[in-house]
Design a protein around this nucleic acid. Structure first.
Lengths: 226, 226
DNA sequence: TACGATGCGGAGTCTGGACTCCGAATATAT
DNA sequence: ATATATTCGGAGTCCAGACTCCGCATCGTA
């Protein structure tokens, strides 16, 4: 039962289930039912559960495959000539990819933290790490401002990926959205002139959540608690 | 049964349920159970369902209230002196608000489209419209580049809101993330020098998802601009 | 071709969570 | 204080979807 050779039909089924699951969860999110996957894969439910002991395991397997694929792509780009285009290109590709796969966006979002301890988590972290290298190279090449750090850049990657998965965001809007973000990333790292005065106004008004702030506009009845 | 006067305790309960629900769904997302809301509100489940015929209705009521509050805040800012700070300030506030309320982020995301036809949808659209006015004013004031249009800017608002709701994104990262986006928004609308060449490289390589593009390999020349 | 061993299918179980029923409790008018 | 409409609570129903059982089919080898 350790290194048993799997029957070829079994392995084929496993792959088919994985493919279908990627599509099903990609369209309907994690909420899609296992039965749906089984049906579209042309197998019985039991078969799905035989290969993947639990639904979570199935989702995880899908994600790991997907993350690994993306990471591999990122690694390839690390060796590419232009560090700037490599970075921005990967960013663009990942967002475009996520645009048609809700689940990956959800997962990127959910796994961006460091809790949860599955393989998907590990794969997600590996991707993030590689992306971080891509970022550093781009910064050394002067294509990305130096003061941008991985946490916020990765957060932006996740954010835009997730947004791109909204059905009403077409390719055009997506491109324009990225253009804005990319301008911000390339931005003026040194020059002190800040046209909009974010920092300051942020400090002033946005002391914390809206709560306090909002109250200014929506008065009375703040809150009563025994 | 039409204009009947509601008993005061009933109305109080309704409000309490709404408050608690905002918190519960804000923390656990829409997935949180109705029972949880009832328990924390100190009422029976039946009471919740009496006031809100279905869970969806409860969620919707919470969202409407929230969206309305935000819209009101935006309207207040419309009359503020500086259009730029008003715009960026609102953006910041909303993101900070969403940071502690997962559900609102989810909802912004889900309702950003135009399908779905409830009150929440309407409230969401109203918010978006008001935000659009805020944007226009900021553009007239020269605080936001002219070529940025509402769809992509709103998409960014939604995207960053959602990202900010991730537990591991602290206020610091959030601020830095927004700083990048804001620089992009204020950005150089006219000047042709594009440091990273997104547009072109995107057009070249980004024909669709990762799949095909990847093969093309890294875009050779960093960037060229006539 | 025969014969284990490995897989398969789908009916059936179990659980969580949305929603309902109805007697008890409470608010308000007189 | 009493009457009565209104509201409450929580036990109970219903259903969807994850997961299991076990007889039947298929693969791979001799």
């Amino acid at each position: 039962m350790t290194g048993r050779v799997q029957r070829v039909d079994a392995r084929a089924n496993r792959e088919r289930i994985l493919d279908v699951a990627e599509d099903v969860f990609g369209t309907g999110g994690k909420a899609a039912s296992t039965e749906e996957v089984a049906r579209r894969a042309g197998v019985g439910i039991a078969t799905v559960f035989r290969h993947f002991p639990t639904k979570a395991a199935l989702v995880e397997a899908v994600l790991v495959r997907r993350f690994d694929r993306l990471r591999t792509r990122a690694e390839t780009l690390l060796a590419a000539p232009g560090a700037g285009p490599a970075f921005y290109g990967f960013f663009t590709e990942l967002v475009a990819d996520a645009a048609t796969k809700i689940a990956i966006g959800e997962a990127l979002h959910d796994l961006a933290g460091d809790d949860g301890a599955g393989e998907a988590m590990a794969a997600s972290l590996a991707l993030r790490r590689t992306f971080g290298t891509l970022l550093q190279q781009a910064q050394r090449a002067g294509a990305v401002r130096d003061d941008a750090e991985l946490p916020e850049v990765y957060a932006l990657l996740v954010a835009t990926s997730r947004a791109a998965s909204q059905p009403h965001i077409d390719e055009d809007v997506r491109t324009r959205m990225l253009a804005i973000v990319f301008d911000g990333l390339a931005g003026k790292p040194q020059d002190g002139a800040r046209p909009h005065g974010l920092r300051s106004s942020d400090r002033q008004t946005g002391r914390s959540g809206v709560q306090g702030v909002m109250i200014a506009g929506a008065p009375s009845a703040p809150d009563r608690r025994p």
